Lab assay of single mutants.
Amino acid sequence: SFNTVDEWLEAIKMGQYKESFANAGFTSFDVVSQMMMEDILRVGVTLAGHQKKILNSIQVMRAQMN
């Protein structure tokens, strides 16, 4: 498990989005775990492969939080 959203993004090789997530207010796992595709688009993730990777990881995160 990760301590910060930045660490999580690095771990899934999506570190290039750290600033975008932070600027959009997605700075805690409570918020990130609620993200939908529209949120991912809003933070500027436009590549389908990256969207899928982030969404898949969020689903895993949700499962671990319950």
Rank of each mutant, 00 (worst) to 15 (best):
A22D: 05
R62N: 11
N56Y: 15
D6V: 06
L41F: 08
L9H: 00
V43G: 05
M61V: 06
A11H: 15
G15V: 06
K13Q: 14
E10F: 07
F21S: 00
G44M: 02
V60A: 14
V60S: 10
K13F: 12
S20W: 06
M37N: 05
M37D: 05
I54S: 00
L9W: 03
D6T: 08
S20A: 15
V31A: 13
A24I: 04
K53N: 08
E19W: 11
T27I: 11
V5R: 01
V60C: 14
S1V: 14
S57N: 06
Q16L: 06
Y17C: 02
F26A: 05
G25S: 04
M36Y: 09
T46W: 07
F2E: 05
G49Q: 13
V43W: 02
K18A: 12
V60W: 12
I12K: 02
R42T: 09
D39V: 03
V32I: 11
M35A: 02
A63C: 15
D6H: 07
M37H: 10
M36E: 15
I12L: 14
A11N: 10
L47G: 07
M61N: 04
S33M: 14
L47A: 10
A22C: 07
E7K: 07
N23F: 10
N3I: 10
Y17N: 01
S20R: 14
Q59S: 10
A48W: 09
Q34A: 10
F29C: 04
D30N: 11
S20D: 11
G44V: 02
A63Q: 14
H50F: 03
M35V: 03
K18P: 01
N66S: 11
K18C: 07
L9M: 04
M14F: 05
F26D: 01
N23D: 10
N66L: 06
I54E: 00
R62T: 06
V45G: 01
L47Y: 11
Y17F: 04
F29I: 11
D6C: 06
T4S: 12
D39G: 03
S1P: 15
Q34S: 09
M37Y: 11
Q64R: 08
W8P: 00
Q34H: 10
K52D: 11
A48E: 14
G15M: 05
R62Y: 07
G25T: 02
A24G: 09
A48T: 10
K52A: 14
E38G: 10
M37F: 11
V43Q: 01
N56W: 14
N56Q: 14
K52I: 14
V45K: 01
F2K: 05
M61G: 03
R62K: 14
S20N: 15
R42G: 08
E19F: 09
M36C: 11
D39L: 03
L47N: 15
S20Q: 14
F2D: 05
L47S: 12
D30T: 12
M36R: 15
Q51L: 08
V32W: 02
Q34C: 09
L41V: 14
M37S: 06
V5N: 01
T27P: 02
N23V: 12
N66G: 12
G49D: 15
S1C: 14
Q34L: 12
Q51S: 06
G49C: 13
R42D: 06
M35W: 03
M35R: 00
L41N: 06
Q51D: 02
G49K: 14
M37K: 08
R62M: 07
Q59P: 03
R62P: 03
S20P: 08
G49W: 15
H50P: 03
K52H: 11
V5Q: 00
V43Y: 02
S1F: 14
S28P: 01
K18H: 04
S57Q: 09
G44E: 03
H50D: 13
K52Y: 12
A22K: 15
Q64L: 11
S28V: 04
A11I: 07
I58C: 04
V32P: 00
L41E: 12
F26I: 12
K53R: 14
D6F: 10
M35H: 01
Q51K: 05
N23Y: 09
F2W: 15
I12S: 03
M61W: 06
Q51C: 07
I12N: 04
Q59E: 13
A22G: 06
N66W: 03
K18F: 04
T46P: 04
K18N: 04
N3D: 11
S33H: 07
D6R: 05
F26C: 06
T27Q: 08
I40D: 00
N56V: 11
S57F: 10
E7Q: 10
E19V: 12
V31Y: 07
I54N: 00
A63E: 15
Q34M: 12
K52Q: 15
A63Y: 08
Y17H: 04
I40T: 02
N23L: 14
H50A: 05
G15P: 08
S28I: 04
E38D: 12
K52M: 14
I12Y: 03
I12Q: 05
R62F: 09
K13I: 05
S20G: 14
M65F: 07
Q51V: 12
M35E: 00
D6Q: 07
K53G: 05
I58W: 02
N3A: 15
A22E: 08
M14K: 01
A11Q: 10
D39A: 04
H50K: 02
N3Y: 12
E19A: 14
M14Q: 03
K52F: 11
F21H: 00
M61C: 05
M37R: 09
A63H: 14
M14N: 01
G44H: 03
D30M: 12
A48C: 09
E19I: 10
D30V: 11
F2T: 06
M37Q: 09
K53F: 15
M35C: 03
W8N: 00
V60F: 13
I58S: 01
